[in-house]
């Protein structure tokens, strides 16, 4: 066999994967290993693959992804904390032919924005919500989130979350799946190649639902890591996530084509 050099392989005609043009060249402000970057990238890949760049408007939340508009190379609006589903509703109602999505974290979507989330879902707004759940307030320095697990340590639950006094972690994804206004509800992850591929398919389905004007909202939760907030290395945080987050927040489709998926 003839010897093949890297120069022989690294040629334009052999290119099989590069970062989408719908991500800017700005260095992402996320911590090393944070799943936000991956979630951004696959969302933009879906928009690129459907050729939706010219008709898509994204809503950035308050939280770690407040600067999503610095990285997503499409028209974007930055919303007040928790209000992204209302902002998205406002846009979609006046531009029913445009593609509108919000990108929100757990504090934004499941605490301060609970009303906006539930009512946008309940009205069946024909939008996509991408929900990053890492069980913590990352941006403000690791405080307890509505999704923080029982016993989990954060800067505002320094001895672990005590459910008797601090409440239970909110499974808002299961909650919105019960509403007739949601058409597609799924929970995924982006910590392994296989998980990323599945999540991208889910995001693709979500945008396809909107593109084909399916009756209802498509809701994609991505359980993700917060290695800085959890105080672990990125790789360890993904292992911890599999062992602790996934049992409480099991991955998989919860509602497909307007029908709840039967639990096994």
């Amino acid at each position: 066999m003839s010897t093949i050099t890297l120069e022989d392989i690294i040629k334009p005609e052999n290119l099989v994967y590069k970062k989408t043009e719908l991500l800017t060249d700005n260095v992402m402000s996320y911590c090393p290993g944070c799943g936000h970057g991956t979630a951004h990238r696959i969302t933009m890949e879906v928009i690129e693959e459907f050729d939706l760049e010219e008709k898509t408007i994204g809503i950035a939340p308050v939280g770690c992804s407040v600067l999503a508009y610095e990285f997503m190379n499409i028209d974007m609006i930055q919303a007040a904390h928790g209000r992204a589903p209302a902002v998205a509703t406002g846009i979609k109602r006046v531009y029913p032919n445009k593609i509108v999505f919000s990108y929100q974290g757990d504090g934004d979507l499941a605490a301060i924005g609970t009303a906006e989330t539930i009512h946008a879902c309940n009205r069946g707004e024909r939008i996509v919500i991408i929900f990053i759940n890492n069980g913590i307030y990352g941006m403000t320095g690791g405080q307890m989130a509505p999704t923080t697990l029982p016993g989990m340590i954060s800067s505002t639950s320094p001895y672990g979350r005590v459910v008797e006094s601090m409440g239970n972690p909110l499974k808002i994804t299961e909650l919105v799946a019960q509403l007739p206004g949601t058409y597609f509800v799924t929970r995924q992850a982006v910590h392994t190649p296989a998980a990323v591929r599945r999540t991208k398919r889910a995001i693709k389905k979500a945008f396809e639902n909107q593109l084909t004007n399916k009756p209802g909202l498509s809701f994609v939760e991505i359980v993700s890591n917060c290695n800085s907030g959890w105080k672990m290395t990125p790789v360890d945080s993904n292992i911890w996530m599999e062992e602790n987050m996934f049992p409480y927040y099991p991955l998989g489709d919860i509602k497909v084509d307007g029908e709840l998926v039967k639990q096994k």
Partner: peptide, 25 residues
Amino acid sequence: VVLQAESELAAINMVYGAAGAGKKV
């Protein structure tokens, strides 16, 4: 479009979105 929002908070943020998209709202 006329929409009854779930709160005044939501209503003004719907305004924010639609106004940000150049509509008279």
